[in-house]
């Protein structure tokens, strides 16, 4: 029982970040129908940029966050404008290859600037230490991380719900043509989606950097989050959150209970085997829409 609870807490902690990253995929997918693999690269860029501001330049935390978000927005605008907009109407392979290319491009940039060394924020970001609650010992960074993830997601969802722009974005989610006819600037919405998504991704990157260390390998989390997005059904925020948390928990359980049977590092294996299972059993995920093809 104790073990179980501990595992669940651990799983939720990593699951929260998967959920956040999954949401960043969903933001773009819902409005542009493009799956932005590049967000895995944004995690790395976010973590390193934040580290640069916070640790190297010793800037105050708020300014560092603002700079990181600003850079994320700038990158988002460039990606959208330069590489995604010309692809509208191209077959599905084109955006897949381009976003994967952008992912590796961002990785290359990070490598160029930061030489691939693993860094840490130390005490500068979230407080270190552990809380003891009964038999549970909760690392503070993970608790704060989880709370921040959920706050960001809540903020985002309420933005969609209660603002005018959010309303416009929801119309775009439903149908591009209808939105266009209603006088909504669909291209502008695409741009907003990229900006939001990249902002969410860099926040994810900062939190991951705090927990796992700032390094190039953070993009693996972006890939794991793909399993979550798919499980949630690709275009549902709620689905992405639930699935993200579920993947976190499944991963921890698998490591604890199957770790003895399966040799080696299975953190990557588990989510992807799970992904294959979803594809075989329920390809459109928990909350996805089944698209009927007609002749």
């Amino acid at each position: 029982m104790e073990d179980l609870l501990k595992s669940i807490m651990l799983g939720l902690a990593s699951g929260g970040i998967y959920a956040l990253v999954a949401v960043s995929y969903v933001i773009i997918y819902k409005s542009t129908r493009i799956f932005a693999f590049s967000q895995a690269g944004m995690l790395v860029i976010g973590a390193y940029t934040f580290w640069q501001c916070l640790v190297v330049w010793s800037l105050p935390i708020w300014i560092s966050i603002l700079i990181t978000l600003a850079i994320a927005a700038a990158i988002a605008i460039i990606i959208e404008r330069v590489s995604m907009r010309p692809l509208i109407g191209q077959p599905i392979l084109a955006p897949i290859v381009v976003t994967l290319g952008v992912m590796l491009f961002l990785r290359g940039i990070a490598l160029l600037f930061w030489h691939g060394e693993v860094e840490g924020y130390g005490e500068a970001f979230l407080p270190l230490g552990v809380w003891h609650v009964g038999f549970l010992s909760l690392p503070k960074i993970q608790v704060y991380g989880f709370i921040i993830c959920m706050l960001v997601i809540a903020l985002l969802i309420s933005f969609y719900k209660y603002t005018r722009t959010g309303l416009g974005m929801r119309v775009v989610h439903e149908d591009h043509l209808v939105a266009q006819n209603l006088g909504i600037n669909v291209k502008r919405i695409f741009q907003y989606s990229w900006i939001f998504s990249c902002a969410v991704a860099v926040i994810g990157g900062m939190l991951l950097g705090n927990i796992q260390g700032v390094g190039l390998d953070l993009d693996a989390n972006g890939l794991i989050a793909i399993a979550a997005v798919l499980f949630g059904g690709l275009e549902s925020f709620g689905g992405a959150v639930i699935a993200g948390l579920a993947i976190g928990i499944i991963q921890i359980f698998a490591i604890q209970y199957l770790g003895a049977l399966l040799p080696g590092e299975i953190t990557m294996l588990v989510p992807f085997v799970f992904l294959l299972l979803i594809l075989l059993i329920k390809p459109y995920g928990l909350f996805g829409l089944v698209r009927i093809e007609r002749l």
Partner: peptide, 16 residues
């Protein structure tokens, strides 16, 4: 880093 940046630029430019 060279290969990552240059290759991805080539791929993206050609696709676009």
């Amino acid at each position: 880093a060279f290969s990552l940046v240059i290759y991805s630029l080539i791929v993206i430019v050609v696709l676009v």
